[in-house]
Design a protein around this nucleic acid. Structure first.
Lengths: 328, 328
DNA sequence: CTGAAAGCGCTAACAT
DNA sequence: ATGTTAGCGCTTTCAG
């Protein structure tokens, strides 16, 4: 009793027209079709419960309506926010989003995983691909076929990039923190191979000077571990800058475990301004990035026709001071 | 200079073999192929940078390797966690996951959007679809073609369901809260049409009795608004149960805005135990759901061969008491 | 405006 | 074991 899915020929037969006419009636072909026939075909289609096989359409047309999104970890609020922007514009344009997670590995593993993901993606012949996974310093820009790809964050020459002003944002944050009276800093960072990490650290240091940096995984636990390590080494900075909010939250947890009150004994600042960051206590000072918009923009950029690698102006990163860094 | 993507025939020609042999060499066909030829074909393939067109494969094979995921909003940590589980098992099995967002609307809008999403999905001929968007009370189970679908949360007869013990979890939460000394409750809920919402409210009430319920959107802002409304109406419960953590966090914000200390003046509890919930202050009491596992399980269930609608045992929901509901 | 027929890139009988 | 040849479901010339 294999309920066979109706095909276009079924519809054509049912409506008593040719395959070609059925096709033209059901999709916005350039050709027009007699309204009466149009009507009949539509009726038959819905009578049979027809729905076009997009794969077949893709093969016939030689072009898909798939856009691929590559993220580190979709459960991470940073990527999830970007993804929501991508999904929104894709839905608006009737495109299908496929999603691949590379995991947030360091070094070679990361490059490999990203390359593997891209290779797999090529088979999908996506109209566009948005790479939101952090790229590795010095790594070759991921090779893609001829598909349009846009990268979020740390661009690469030759790839369309929604560049984020990581360096400037971190620098401004450092500046604001100094204005608040902080002079003694430490930095908690993700894997140092990641361009984003490097940029944020560099930006911060450009203002704060040669502050100690502790690296760990790019996660809440990484933040916790890095903070613990810092404390274990005897460091007692006035203020800790974590290169991502997720790490900052881990750092706060580590402080509490050590009996240190974040925001009071040691100030904490993060980066990204993910949702909920204003809801932790003390509310976390952060550098806001319009993540969903960035995702939306990345897809639009990837999809856009103008050939060039025209990086639009970098997305501004805005410092948001909150209770975790009180005036000192 | 349109770099034409190499096709299988190109590879076959380059290797001097037939299309069929090339196909068999490059994919794990049942047939085997002479190692020498195999070698040649593989070499040609990589020389030309060939990568199989999955769409064409799908058409030829009559089956895709796409699984579709329908969520309310991918930026919501609840859905994002589920998605990460789905993506994980899909990646393991070499499946592509496509993602559609319905938005978290109430009532008719929700049903419509979900149906629209499903209709669009049918065109993809997915191997399986996982529905994580909350279903509406009394609505027809979403009609799907013959594709395997699994629903997360509030099941529907006839659909494979990873059922979550929302009712029991909420009931146990109420019980624990009473044990802590709370007697006077209020509930902050999402749209009352959602089955999940109804179940959690019912479960809570089954133990706590006829407590007042304030409905709002299923979001942080909804939680904030609902809490404000409650306060404006003069309510001063000892403890507020928000049917989701995201709403609970909004409720806490509303309390603070009103000069009320969450956890001290009014206790707050949530549901889902999303990441970071332990990091807000006071740490939020919640009912833990293994979201990523639920996603993984849903996909496995949708994919599974055994025909039936065998709902596995409901996923246990575990109460996690934290500082937001101190002993009273 | 409509229909017949040739593909799209690949797989799977069916020969050989 | 390899090659030939129909298709898969759809679009799109190209004729009528």
């Amino acid at each position: 009793m294999s309920e066979n899915v109706p095909t276009l020929s079924d519809v054509a037969a049912h409506a008593g027209v040719s395959l070609a006419t059925a096709s033209r009636a059901l999709n916005g072909s350039a050709r027009t079709v007699n309204p009466a026939l149009q009507e009949r075909v539509l009726a038959s289609a819905s009578a049979l419960g027809y729905s076009a096989n997009v794969q077949a359409q893709a093969v016939a047309r030689g072009t898909t309506n798939v856009v691929a999104l590559v993220v580190g970890d979709i459960a991470d609020p940073y990527f999830a926010s970007i993804a929501s922007g991508v999904v929104r514009v894709a839905d608006e344009r009737g495109l299908i989003v496929t999603i691949t997670a590379t995991g947030l590995y360091a070094g070679a593993a990361s490059v490999e995983r990203e390359q593997a993901a891209l290779t797999a993606l090529r088979g999908q012949r996506p109209r566009a691909v948005v790479l939101a996974g952090s790229r590795v310093v010095g790594a070759e820009p991921p090779t893609t076929g001829r598909e349009r790809v846009a990268v979020v964050g740390s661009g690469a020459p030759g790839l369309r990039t929604v560049s984020v002003d990581n360096t400037g944002g971190a620098a401004r944050l450092a500046h604001e923190l100094r204005s608040l009276g902080y002079a003694d800093f430490a930095v908690i960072a993700g894997p140092e191979e990641l361009v984003t990490v490097r940029d944020r650290v560099d930006g911060f240091r450009s203002v704060a000077g040669e502050v100690p940096v502790e690296h760990a995984e790019f996660s809440r636990d990484g933040g916790r571990r890095a903070m613990s390590a810092l404390l274990a080494s005897g460091a007692r900075p006035e203020c800790v800058f974590a290169v991502s909010d997720v790490m900052a939250i881990g750092a706060m947890a580590a402080l509490r475990e050590a009996g240190i009150r974040p925001g009071e004994d040691i100030a904490v600042a993060g980066f990204d301004d993910i949702p909920l960051v204003a809801d932790v206590t003390p509310a976390l000072t952060s550098v806001a990035l319009p993540l969903a918009d960035i995702g939306a923009r990345a897809l639009e950029l990837a999809l856009s026709d103008d050939g060039g690698t025209e990086d639009a102006a970098p997305v501004a990163a805005e410092v948001r001071l909150r209770a975790s860094t009180p005036r000192r």
